[in-house]
Amino acid sequence: MTSKDLRITDESTTLVDRVEEKLLDYFRENKLMPGDSLPNEVELAKALGVARTVLREALSRLKMMGLVKSRTKVGMTLAEPDILGGMKRVMDPRIMSKNHLLDILNLRVIIEIGMSPFVFMNKTEKDIEELEQIVDRERVLRDNQLSVEEESKFHFKLYEMTGNDTIIQLNQIFAPVFGYIKDHFSKILDDYTKTTPDQQRPSHKDLVNILKDGTADQFQKAMRKHLELYFHLLHKEYQKGDG
């Protein structure tokens, strides 16, 4: 690596931003893979033509993303980034706008309906037994609604059945938002359940029965109806605009 490789010329952003981008370019251009060693700080700072304090700030950003790791006697190496790690750290519904919360709920609904065929395809007898046990332990609270904890147990299991680690992680990240929404918008959800006949809202038990004896298409349609109260909430709140 020479100074010609990394010398910074763009001055449209902050110096730390430019150093960070130049390092990412270097990783890509040299086709570095997770586990590959990186030059030490002295070499990098010299090649970039910047002070080590600036370089360290740029490297700290990459370390926070999980893209760079430092180990004693090994030095810095490239790592596979934890794509969802940063999202998990900031997923606090108390500091999010209403529309941001609704967008996350919308995304979760889209994922759950979209993953239904994979849940059906991957189901095993053990999965069905576990879902039945979850349903048997459920306690219905007000207006035929389940607690957040009871609701989550069932849906967590469905996510697990996809076999997709990224989707499973997303569900864990979204969990605090889902609980907050159920509490914050409880009146809208309660009003919907009061005015909608039970037969129009498939229960968890109904979903398990379809998984056992129905088809993938029937299961996906039932999931769509099961989540209808959230479509109702999203429609009403999006109409109001940001709050």
Rank of each mutant, 00 (worst) to 15 (best):
E29R: 14
M87L: 15
G35D: 04
E29I: 03
P93D: 11
T9D: 08
E20T: 15
K31Q: 13
K69Q: 12
T9E: 13
L23N: 01
D10Q: 06
A51R: 11
K22L: 09
A79D: 14
M96P: 10
K4C: 08
L15Q: 13
T14L: 04
L84W: 02
F27R: 05
E41S: 08
I8F: 05
E29F: 01
L38T: 08
E20L: 13
K46H: 10
M87I: 14
K88L: 01
M64K: 13
V42E: 14
V50R: 00
L6V: 06
L101H: 00
I8N: 03
D92R: 01
L24V: 15
A79S: 15
E29N: 13
D10P: 05
V68A: 10
D25R: 14
Y26W: 15
I111A: 12
M33Y: 12
M96Q: 04
K73A: 11
T9Y: 07
D82K: 11
E57C: 00
L55C: 05
R56F: 09
D10K: 07
L38Y: 06
Y26C: 01
D25M: 13
V109M: 02
V19N: 06
G86W: 06
G75Y: 06
S70G: 11
P93R: 11
T53V: 06
T9P: 02
K46R: 15
V109E: 02
E20K: 13
T77L: 11
G85T: 00
L107S: 00
F27E: 00
D92P: 01
K22A: 08
L107T: 03
Y26R: 01
L102I: 01
M96G: 00
N40G: 11
R89T: 08
P34A: 07
